[in-house]
Design a protein around this nucleic acid. Structure first.
Length: 436
RNA sequence: GGAGGCGUCGCCUAGUCUGGUCUAUGGCGCCCGCCUGCUAAGCGGGUUUGGGGAUAAAACCCCAUCGAGGGUUCAAAUCCCUCCGCCUCCGCCA
């Protein structure tokens, strides 16, 4: 959710942002109209309520006097009783009116809020306009390797190494499920351990988080808007999270944070569940696109002034991890239309996948500025003790499945063995993976 | 899963039975000021959050907020219902 004050004070900025995203510009005027309507309705209701309270209090005062007179056996009892009855009658009338105006004001406020929530975050300066294909490549690192033999794809390699078992995954759970076995399972563990060790070096606090969360938590991060991609339990009460970002963002919901010692930086490794609805036929081979994987995520709460700097830091850490895996990759500045509603800017790191001849997304980092925090009600004490919303950012350290795809394919050798990059060796306990 | 207890503006706490001077009490902490060689003590004031109005900005005025949401009533922290969380006991269990 963006700040209504920004919409009021600078509607053109909001329009420009919507335009860059290819989103609805007229929404801005709808929001402003609804805001206008809501405010006049609130004013009307509140002044009526104020009158009602005054009258109602006079009933209380009259009752007090009446009771005192009764106790004292005073002759004024009849007069006082009449006064109290009259005040009560006036209050009854006002009460009915107040109820009506309150209902109207509530309704208009709901309509306003619903519209405001539809507005996407304001895109930061420099973000390329347009859709998925309009990204800007910021940097290309390393060279796609040229093979002097015919490279195998990750599944062929995984099967030769007895590291990936799709058949049994399908048998147990269905399509897009898999088993990692032996070296495959060890690789998954090693990647997460590698990510966690870097996270510790970079000053992130590790958390073990819930992966089943309430509708409220799911909605807070905006993931309920993409409902078709979320697994919901039959009970309708809990959802399986597609990323630990949900829990990491929910962690400080409704809190006022103390950021005087700098940003709060968290990391969590969790299992991620995604339905991948609408991706039928895409990446059907192997473990590139699956319903369940493991991911180590970073999440940062910081002063809005520091958000851009923190975003660069998250990107730097992502690159550090990929450098350590010795993969060729590129960094792209994702175009406005492909950001999702919460992000003001997003960088993806895409690794080279030799058998696809393409760069594919491995990690991603988003600066959500204050958009998420406003929805989750996460604030800090600002100037003069006033509260203000914080900025939130998130970034992938590593997942297990896609890096395994990239590692197997890029580091395969003619004999079917896999070279293990140095940074991963301490966690895997070997410098080469050979067929069993 | 069963039974009982509890949830008050940072923390603690009064108020709930018996609805109305409750404009939610008091203490601690914190902030500002006074006093003072300094510090402490003392004294005075302030101290939930969100929204609406007013303003150049404030001061200020108003509405809501006693775990959340409904209901009864002219009037709800207080009475009724539903839900959530915590604690104690019992049962079951890795």
């Amino acid at each position: 959710m963006i700040d209504i004050k920004l919409v009021r004070d600078n509607p053109d900025l909001v329009r420009a942002s919507q335009r860059a995203r290819g989103a609805d510009e007229t929404l801005v005027d709808q929001v402003l109209a609804a805001d206008e309507k809501r405010r006049s309705s609130i004013t009307e209701f509140e002044s009526l309520r104020s009158q009602q309270k005054t009258v109602s209090k006079s009933v209380g005062a009259a009752m007090g006097k009446l009771n005192a007179a009764r106790k004292a056996g005073s002759a004024d009892v009849d007069v006082l009783a009449k006064e109290a009855d009259e005040a009560r009658a006036r209050a009854t009338e006002l009460s009915a009116q107040v109820k009506q105006r309150e209902a109207a004001a509530d309704q208009e406020d709901k309509e306003f809020t619903a519209l405001l929530r539809e507005l996407d975050n304001i895109v930061l300066d420099g973000v390329p306009a347009g859709g998925e294909e309009d990204f800007e490549t910021l940097e290309t690192v390393g060279e796609p390797r040229s093979f002097d033999f015919e490279p195998l794809d990750h599944l062929a390699l995984g099967e030769k190494l007895d590291a990936i078992d799709m058949q049994r995954g399908a048998k147990v759970s269905g399509s897009r499920f898999y088993f990692l076995k032996g070296a495959g399972a060890r690789l998954s563990n090693a990647l997460m351990a590698y990510a966690q060790s870097i996270a510790a070096e970079e000053g992130f606090t590790p958390l073990i988080v819930p992966t089943l969360v309430s509708a409220q938590s799911m909605g807070g991060t905006g993931y309920l808007d993409a409902h078709e991609d979320v697994y919901e339990l039959e009970s309708g009460e809990l959802y399986l999270t597609g990323t630990s970002e949900v829990a990491l963002a929910g962690f400080h919901t409704d809190e006022i944070l103390d950021l005087s010692n700098g940003p709060l930086r968290y990391t969590a490794t969790s299992t991620c569940y995604r339905r991948e609805a609408g991706s039928y036929g895409k990446d059907t081979r192997g473990i590139f696109r699956v319903h369940q994987f493991t991911k180590t995520e970073m999440f940062v709460y910081c002063d809005p002034q520091q958000a851009v700097e923190e975003h660069q830091n998250l990107l730097r850490i992502e690159r550090r991890l990929l450098d350590g895996l010795e993969l060729p990759y590129r960094v792209i500045d994702v175009a406005a239309g492909d950001l999702g509603g919460s992000a003001a800017r997003k960088y993806d790191c895409e690794a080279w996948v030799p058998t696809q001849g393409k760069y594919r997304e491995l990690t991603s980092t988003s600066n959500c500025t204050t958009y998420q925090a406003r929805r989750l009600n996460i604030r800090q004490r600002g100037e003069g003790g006033k509260t203000e919303f914080v900025a939130t950012l998130n970034g992938t350290m590593l997942t297990d499945t896609r890096p395994i795809v990239a590692l197997l394919e890029n580091h395969q050798q003619a004999d079917g063995s896999i070279r293990v990059p140095q940074a991963l060796q301490p966690f895997l306990g070997t410098d080469v993976i050979r067929p069993a």
